[in-house]
């Protein structure tokens, strides 16, 4: 769990945060980290095997799902600035999270969660490797492309829902640095990114229980008073991924109500 691994990864994350995201204009293009980096198929064969389906553990999910409405003693409570704390409170008035008519939940409108909220979404996830690439595919169709051969972010990248992600391997840990996230993407359900200044550093690894742990540091000076630090846990799930097309039967409306029109024939 986070408590036991925090010092080591926090130190590394702190260093990354202090230096800021590496951009292509720096003298560090290309992945120059030691050890296997998955830049060839032979190298990929020596990387940790994370194949199969992973789902967020229920406790971790519930806590992060309640972060907007019940932040006390919640490990997923964000250190919000006064402006964004006021936003959270305004949307936490209802017991379920955000009252009808005032919701800002991308999922209800079949929009992507985006980063970093995607990593808490209650979907199954799979990892796929290719030379110089790691993809994280969620059942809802969102996919993260992590470029392990880049070493630096492109100059002036377009903002996207999942952001621009570069990564490298430190032994059995995949370290991912993500910037250029659209403000419309969510920090967690119901809380958008305040601006495109969100910077996410994740250290992804297997813990002693053979669960995927995603140690995460999120910064955005427009939204947080200090780095938002948390660990997310995914559990192995037998079976295949299940397709999830939100628009096929979405009955949630933008007004926060439910469309109860019966299916044809009823």
């Amino acid at each position: 769990m986070f408590e036991t691994s925090a010092p080591k990864w926090c130190l590394a994350a702190g260093l990354v945060l202090a230096l800021g995201p590496v951009r292509a204009t720096d003298q560090t293009q290309g992945n120059h980290w030691p050890g296997e980096q998955g830049l060839t198929w032979a190298s990929i064969a020596k990387l940790p095997n994370w194949s199969g389906l992973w789902v967020p553990d229920p406790k971790s999910f519930r806590e992060s799902d309640q972060a907007i409405s019940n932040p006390k003693h919640n490990p997923y409570s964000a250190p919000l600035t006064p402006k964004w704390e006021a936003y959270r409170l305004a949307h936490a008035a209802a017991p379920g999270g955000f009252p009808p008519g005032a919701s800002k939940a991308n999922a209800a409108l079949c929009l992507p969660d985006g980063m970093p909220a995607l990593m808490q979404a209650p979907h199954g996830f799979e990892f796929f490797y290719a030379p110089g690439r790691v993809a994280i595919v969620a059942e809802n169709g969102e996919m993260r492309h992590i470029y392990t051969d880049a070493g630096a972010h492109p100059d002036d990248p377009d903002d996207t829902w999942e952001g621009d992600s570069i990564g490298h391997w430190e032994g059995d840990t995949l370290v991912v640095d993500t910037i250029a996230i659209k403000p419309e993407a969510e920090i967690f359900m119901g809380l958008p990114n305040a601006s495109d200044k969100t910077h996410v550093v994740e250290r992804i690894h297997l813990n002693a229980q053979r669960e995927i742990e995603v140690d995460t540091v999120v910064t955005n000076p427009d939204e947080f008073t200090k780095p938002f630090v948390y660990t997310r846990t995914w559990q192995s799930q037998p079976g295949r991924a299940v397709e999830y097309v939100c628009l096929e039967g979405n009955r949630a409306t933008s007004a926060g109500t439910i469309d109860l029109t019966p299916p044809s024939g009823l």
Partner: peptide, 16 residues
């Protein structure tokens, strides 16, 4: 369910 099912849309529409 009350604790967990609000994920896709607000659960405030239901009388929990």
């Amino acid at each position: 369910f009350f604790c967990a099912a609000q994920a896709h849309h607000s659960y405030a529409v239901f009388n929990t």
